[in-house]
């Protein structure tokens, strides 16, 4: 097996951590709320790189998600998602606490193949935008054409968002997800709140996110080489 040092960046649910948007106050839904914005912090984000032929079977057997081979494709599972980012790059998002285990299993399944897995959980965060006017908020924010005819459910793109960039993906008819860089999270959120003000927007913080290991703590901290 290739010698790669990797570790669990968040070894136990008891270790405190802050979401990139911890300082933002909630905005309770009042009156007509056409857009609800939520932060889904503390999910584990893994960046997978390699030839599709190398990754496909291992990724499918470990995550249960078929590796999307078409450009701009994203597949959603139960709390998980796997998105095409470029011809040799995918983004796997799983519930918090599962990333390290998955990474270990993937490395085991891939063996000596030429690939890379990087835990990027600390560098980005997931936002969801839900409601009938979510699409209007996106239209104000990105140069990408989010019209339903051009942006069906199950599509995900990386594009310019406000004056930063973001991964934009469509989960269902009225629900969209944004993956933004941690350092731009504050900016993007303020932009969204401003853009959504005319439609009525609510913002829910991330406290409700539960670490997957809290239910069944198996958490041995370890470093694998």
């Amino acid at each position: 097996m290739t010698r790669v040092a990797y570790f669990d960046p968040h070894p136990a649910p008891t270790v405190p951590r802050q979401s990139p948007l911890h300082h933002m106050a909630e905005i309770a839904p009042t009156g007509d709320v056409a857009v609800t914005l939520r932060e889904h912090a503390f999910r584990d984000h893994l960046n997978l790189r390699g030839e599709p032929g190398v990754l496909a079977s291992a990724v499918e057997s470990v995550t249960g998600l078929a590796l999307p081979l078409e450009p701009q494709q994203v597949v959603f599972g139960d709390g998980t998602s796997l998105q095409w980012l470029s011809p040799d790059e995918w983004l796997l998002i799983v519930p918090g606490g599962e990333g390290f285990r998955l990474q270990r299993e993937l490395r085991k399944a891939l063996g000596d193949a030429h690939f890379s897995i990087v835990d990027v959980s600390g560098g980005q965060t997931l936002l969801s935008l839900e409601g009938e006017e979510a699409i209007s908020v996106l239209m104000k924010s990105t140069v990408y054409d989010v019209d339903p005819r051009h942006f069906p459910v199950g599509k995900g793109v990386t594009s310019v968002f406000a004056k930063a960039n973001a991964i934009i993906r469509r989960v269902d008819d009225t629900r969209w997800e944004l993956v933004v860089r941690r350092s731009f999270a504050d900016y993007c959120l303020r932009w969204l709140l401003d853009a959504g003000e005319e439609f009525g927007i609510a913002f829910q913080r991330a406290e409700h996110e539960v670490d997957a290991r809290e239910a069944a703590p198996a958490g041995e901290a370890e470093m694998t080489t």
């Binding site: 450009p71 701009q72 470029s86 011809p87 140069v143 990408y144 793109v157 594009s159 310019v160």
Partner: peptide
């Protein structure tokens, strides 16, 4: 040619 669609110049 990799994304297989037209994109805005801003992205390039």
């Amino acid at each position: 040619p990799y994304c297989a669609e037209y994109r805005e110049e801003e992205e390039f």
